[in-house]
C-alpha cells in the first residue's frame, strides 16, 4: 500500500471510483436500496437528454401566499439577518400591478435556468456554469465574488453573501464572499425528488408549480407546454429559460 501511495500521480481516481462503486453495489444489502437506485452515477446523471424545467400557472399563485419562499429559506437555511438589502433571496414573490387597470397578480421569481445564461457568459473564472441537464449553478470553490453575474442577470435572481454564516445544511453549502442563487434543489433532483418550493406549493400553496423534464415527451410539463399557452419572462432576450409562466 505504501508503495503505491507514494506514487501520487499514478493513482487513477476514475478507475478507483469505478471499482469502489462496484464493490459498494455488491455490498448493497446493507444500504438503503431505494436511495442507491435513485442516486445516479456519473454515466447516467444529468444526461443531455434531460432538461429540468418549471411551469408556473400564475392564476393559481395566490397574492400573499409565500409557501415556496418559506420552503426554500428553510431547505437552504437562508437566514433572516434583519437586513433586507443584503439578505439572500433565491426565490421571491412579485406582485404585478397593471399600470392601466390596477389589476394585481402574483408570481414567484427565481433563477430562470436559461439555456443561454448571461451570468455564465460574463463570469470571469467560469464559476457560473450550466449543467448538462440545464441547471445553472455557481461553483463556490472558484467564485471570486466579483458580482458581475448579478449585474448581468435580467431577473435579479442572484444574491451575494454579505456576512459570515454558520449552521449551514450539509446539502447546501453557503458562505461569505461568493454569489449564489436557486439550485433547483440539485440535491433533491439528483436523487429523484422535486425541489422544495414545488413540494411546498402543492402541500400548502395553490399548486401552481409543475416541475419536470421539459424534453421528455412523457412528462406532464412537456405535455402542458405543448398544449397550453405559456411564456418566458424577457423572451426578447432569447435566453430560452427553464422556468415558464402561464397567465402573465
Amino acid at each position: 500500500m505504501s508503495g503505491s501511495s507514494e506514487n501520487l500521480g499514478s493513482v487513477d481516481l476514475k478507475r478507483r471510483k469505478f471499482m469502489v462503486t462496484m464493490v459498494a453495489s455488491m455490498a448493497g444489502a446493507g444500504f438503503n436500496l431505494v436511495e442507491l437506485a435513485m442516486a445516479k452515477t456519473s454515466l447516467e446523471a444529468e444526461s443531455k437528454l434531460v432538461r429540468w424545467g418549471l411551469l408556473i400557472d400564475t392564476e393559481k399563485c395566490g397574492v400573499g401566499c409565500n409557501a415556496c419562499v418559506s420552503a426554500c429559506n428553510t431547505e437552504h437555511n437562508l437566514e433572516d439577518h434583519g437586513r433586507p438589502e443584503t439578505d439572500a433571496q433565491w426565490i421571491r414573490k412579485l406582485d404585478l400591478v397593471d399600470e392601466q387597470t390596477s389589476h394585481v397578480h402574483s408570481l414567484p421569481m427565481l433563477c430562470q435556468h436559461c439555456e443561454h445564461p448571461p451570468c455564465v457568459d460574463v463570469c470571469p473564472t467560469g464559476a457560473s456554469f450550466r449543467r448538462d441537464d440545464g441547471i445553472v449553478l455557481v461553483d463556490k470553490h472558484t467564485c471570486i465574488g466579483c458580482r458581475y453575474c448579478m449585474i448581468a442577470c435580467p431577473y435579479k435572481a442572484r444574491s451575494f453573501i454579505h456576512e459570515n454564516l454558520t449552521n449551514q445544511r450539509s446539502w447546501s453549502p453557503r458562505g461569505k464572499g461568493v454569489v449564489e442563487s436557486c439550485t433547483f434543489c440539485t440535491h433533491r433532483v439528483d436523487t429523484g425528488r422535486i425541489p422544495a418550493c414545488v413540494e411546498a406549493c402543492h402541500a400548502e400553496g395553490g399548486g401552481a408549480m409543475t416541475f419536470g423534464d421539459m424534453v421528455n415527451p412523457e412528462s406532464e410539463i412537456s405535455h402542458r407546454l405543448k398544449s397550453e399557452p405559456s411564456r418566458q419572462i424577457r423572451e426578447d432576450l432569447k435566453l430560452n429559460t427553464g422556468v415558464r409562466y402561464q397567465n402573465v
Binding site: K17, D139, D190
Partner: peptide, 12 residues
C-alpha cells in the same frame, strides 16, 4: 467536481 458539475450523488 463529480457531484457539483455532473450531479453524481453516488460518490464515496
Amino acid at each position: 467536481d463529480l457531484t457539483m458539475r455532473e450531479g453524481d450523488r453516488s460518490i464515496r
